[in-house]
Amino acid sequence: MKLITYFKCSLALLLFAGMTAAVGEQACASSLDGSGSVNVVGKDISPPVDPEKPGNEVNPGEGPSTTGDLRIDFVSSLNFAAAEITETNRTYDSLAQLFHSDTAARGYYIQVSDFRSEPSGWSLTLSQDTPFTSSIIQTLEDQSLKGAVLSFGNGWANSAGNSQTPTVSRDTLAINEMNTAYTVAVAGSGQGKGVWTIAFGASGENTSNQENTLTALTDKNGNAIIDPIFNKPSYSNSAVSLSVPETINIYPVQYTTTLTWSLEAAPTE
């Protein structure tokens, strides 16, 4: 039997002339697809945990999730900080994950749980369905940000359990082909059991020898930029970024795309 868990996330990029506010919002739904049957014998819910201190539960706000013994518990929202539109240097760093608690800012992360009685392994993949597009632009050829690339780097796995660690690619995952599944993490037989976080980027306080990819955001006067939802200082995360070619026209409109995360169980004999 092969079990596949999907969810699709709509990612929006809002651009303004002069000062740019690039903001991504996710609105996700989940569904299960596969043959055979699934018996739920493990924990039904695994609350989100701190990717740098996975023994600590955290409150990152609402996020998409799936159900079952093998499931996705949480995925960070993908947002981008305000930036000025220029003709060059069109790379936008994402915002770091914040929490409704004393937990400091963290990198973008996905939480996976595997509570199957016989964990045969799993794979986590990511694909982008379409380029960033805005249908309100009158010129058809300018409706898409052709060649814009979402990149995910500095990936690493963490857990409070003692299961063997799944493999996360250390190479930067650059999504330059639409509708192509890119492998994010793979757990072999006996690996990745329990609750695992797959993070892209880390704070300077991490104790796992991960590079610090977070930078505090300030305004032109050097004051901290406060996130209105979490009421905390905002940080950028250079591990996740969007690059837009200099040859592409950018308009002051909202562009959207859809990302698909897939968690697939390894086939059993």
Rank of each mutant, 00 (worst) to 15 (best):
K232Q: 11
L242A: 05
R106G: 01
G155Y: 01
A17M: 11
S234I: 11
T213H: 03
R71K: 12
G153V: 09
N237P: 05
A266G: 01
N249A: 14
T247Y: 13
Q111V: 04
A17N: 13
E141N: 13
D69Y: 05
E62F: 14
F99P: 01
E84K: 12
Q254G: 11
T257N: 02
Y108H: 13
Q138L: 14
P252V: 04
N154L: 08
V184T: 11
V41T: 15
L217Q: 06
F7E: 10
L70M: 05
F152H: 05
T66M: 00
A265C: 09
S144Y: 07
P267Q: 09
D93E: 13
F152I: 02
A202K: 07
L140D: 15
I226W: 09
N221V: 04
A82H: 09
D219K: 03
V49I: 15
A187I: 01
L3Q: 14
A22D: 07
V168P: 02
A199K: 03
L11H: 07
A216D: 09
V58F: 07
S134L: 06
T213W: 04
T247C: 09
C28P: 06
K43A: 14
N221D: 15
S10P: 08
Y109M: 07
I175Q: 06
E57T: 13
T91S: 10
I225V: 15
A12M: 12
S189Q: 15
D171S: 15
A224H: 10
G121K: 07
F80M: 01
K53C: 08
N221Y: 14
A96C: 04
D33H: 11
F16Q: 13
K43Q: 14
E25K: 12
D73F: 00
P233N: 08
G61N: 02
S189A: 14
S134Q: 04
T130V: 12
S163K: 04
W156Q: 04
E25P: 04
W156N: 01
L95I: 08
L124Q: 00
Q210V: 05
Y182T: 02
N212L: 10
T257Q: 05
D50N: 15
G147P: 03
I250C: 11
L145P: 03
D142C: 06
Y108K: 07
S144Q: 10
M1F: 07
A174W: 04
F80W: 06
D219C: 02
E205K: 12
T215A: 14
S134W: 10
S113P: 08
A105D: 00
W261P: 00
A81C: 09
S189P: 06
T125N: 06
I225L: 08
N39I: 15
